[in-house]
Amino acid sequence: MANHTPIWEVFVRAKNGLSHRHVGSVHAADASGAVQAARDVYTRRSEGVSLWVVPSGAITASDPGDADALFAPAEDKVYRHPTFYVVPDNVKHI
C-alpha cells in the first residue's frame, strides 16, 4: 500500500526575502496532505515561513549521461564567475 503513495518534493522559504529551497521529499496521497506532511517533517524547528510541494513526477531532470555535454564546458570559463568584484560586507545571500 504505502509504496503507491505519491512522492512530493518539498521547498521551504526560510524567511521573507529568500527564495524557496529544496529540502527533501514526503509521501502523501494528495496535495493538502503533502503540505501537512512537509510542515510536520521539515518545519518543526522553525525552519520556514512558507512551503511549496510539487509532485515528484512533475520534475523533469537532466540526464546524468548528458553531464559532460551540459556541464563540462563551463568548467574552464572562470571569467563567468563574479570573483573579480569585491562584494560589500552588507550584501548577504550571494
Binding site: 504505502a2 514526503v26 506532511a37 510536520d40 517533517v41 518543526r44
Partner: peptide, 12 residues
C-alpha cells in the same frame, strides 16, 4: 505510525 510523515505529525 503508518508512515514516517504521520509518525512525526502525531508526535508533534
Amino acid at each position: 505510525a503508518p508512515t514516517l510523515e504521520i509518525d512525526l505529525a502525531l508526535s508533534n
